[in-house]
């Protein structure tokens, strides 16, 4: 078990899968010669050459659409959108084509396409570069959505994504690229989609989170432990397929739930999770399900007020305490 960062874990997964399967190709804006805006594709061009690692024009809709066609022609493209914000330029190919082709053609085609996209806020990049759009993709049938929080999950999920026969929106968090963690040495140790992980065991309240919010939830749980509140942290890891069993069992055990997501609150991922908890755990609940989400505003630039718009550890701590205070 080597300790590496999230970026290098992704890079290792890409390299290993490209060595394993010659049908895996990588393209995107500045992924080859420049080695990626976030350097996730570092060393790929040198090792695999320009036939397999390609820089593209700034044409996001086609970055996805060309991957759709290449997959129909027998390849496994891993396309990078420089940031998830630019996926909005590619929504026609993502939603109308990538997600629907298999179904509307009666199951005659599989689309093993991975769209990697870094996202999330917190770097003072303002309204157009700080979005968390996972609920957009989760909303659309036909797409898998992966949201890794740790280097090990980034590594194991990306390998599963590349080997999977279905389209995957692989959403990386920009603030996690430098985070460190242990990653298994065995290149076959992948992480199956649809398996949430209990990242911390606890008995009083369940915190359901994903991506960077998992890290914050773990920090909150650490603080709350000092005050005698035992939190169980469930990391969803993939939003589609969604492992409902793990969080439902956890909430039925703890009888309290806080759902944390960085995306906007309205119609956000947390709304769906909270609804599933209500439908499945209503009679075990000792308190209403609480949500901690991004504020429903475009992201401001100034770091003083940007912070208000993104869930912080203190917000999670507060929500857990409120849940604990509710009378059963």
């Amino acid at each position: 078990m080597a300790e590496i960062n999230y970026r290098d874990a992704l890079n290792r997964a890409l390299k290993e899968e490209m060595r394993r399967d010659p049908s895996v190709v990588v393209w995107g804006e500045d992924v080859a010669l420049y080695e990626g805006s976030f350097k996730v594709t570092r060393g790929l061009l040198a090792e695999f050459g320009e036939e397999r690692v390609l820089d593209t024009p700034i044409s996001e809709n086609s970055i996805v659409g060309v991957a759709v066609g290449a997959a129909m022609g027998g390849l496994r493209p891993v396309a990078e959108l420089m940031t998830v914000n630019f996926a909005l330029l590619a929504m026609d190919q993502i939603v109308n084509h990538l997600a629907k082709i298999r179904y509307m053609f009666g199951g005659q085609a599989s689309l093993p396409v991975v769209i990697r996209a870094p996202g999330g806020g917190g770097s003072q990049l303002a309204a157009q570069h700080s979005q968390s759009l996972e609920s957009y993709f989760m909303h659309c049938p036909g797409l898998y959505v992966a949201v890794p929080a740790t280097p090990a999950d980034a590594y194991g999920l990306l390998k599963s994504a590349i080997r999977d026969n279905n389209p995957v929106m692989f959403l990386e968090h920009e603030l996690l690229y430098n985070s460190k963690g242990t990653v298994p040495d065995d290149p076959e140790q992948t992480i199956p989609f649809g398996s949430a992980e209990i990242k911390r065991q606890g008995s009083d309240v369940t915190i359901v989170a994903y991506s960077r919010m998992t890290i914050l939830a773990l920090e909150a749980a650490e603080e709350l432990e000092k005050e005698g509140i035992s939190c169980e942290v469930v990391d969803l890891r993939t939003l589609v397929p969604l492992d409902t069993t793990t969080f439902i069992e956890s909430v039925n055990k703890t009888s309290r739930a806080v759902v944390v997501s960085e995306c906007w609150s309205t119609c956000g991922v947390g709304a769906d999770i909270a609804n599933r908890i209500h439908e499945n755990c209503f009679y075990s609940l000792a308190a209403p399900v609480r949500r901690v989400s991004g504020l429903d505003v475009p992201m401001p630039y100034s770091r003083k007020i940007e912070k208000l718009c993104i869930p912080q550890v203190v917000d999670i701590v507060k929500a857990v305490k409120e849940t604990m205070e509710a009378k059963s």
């Binding site: 086609s62 659409g65 060309v66 066609g69 290449a70």
Partner: peptide, 12 residues
Amino acid sequence: GQFPIAVGLAFA
């Protein structure tokens, strides 16, 4: 919608 898909098939 078919333009990039045709390009991708040609790439493959």
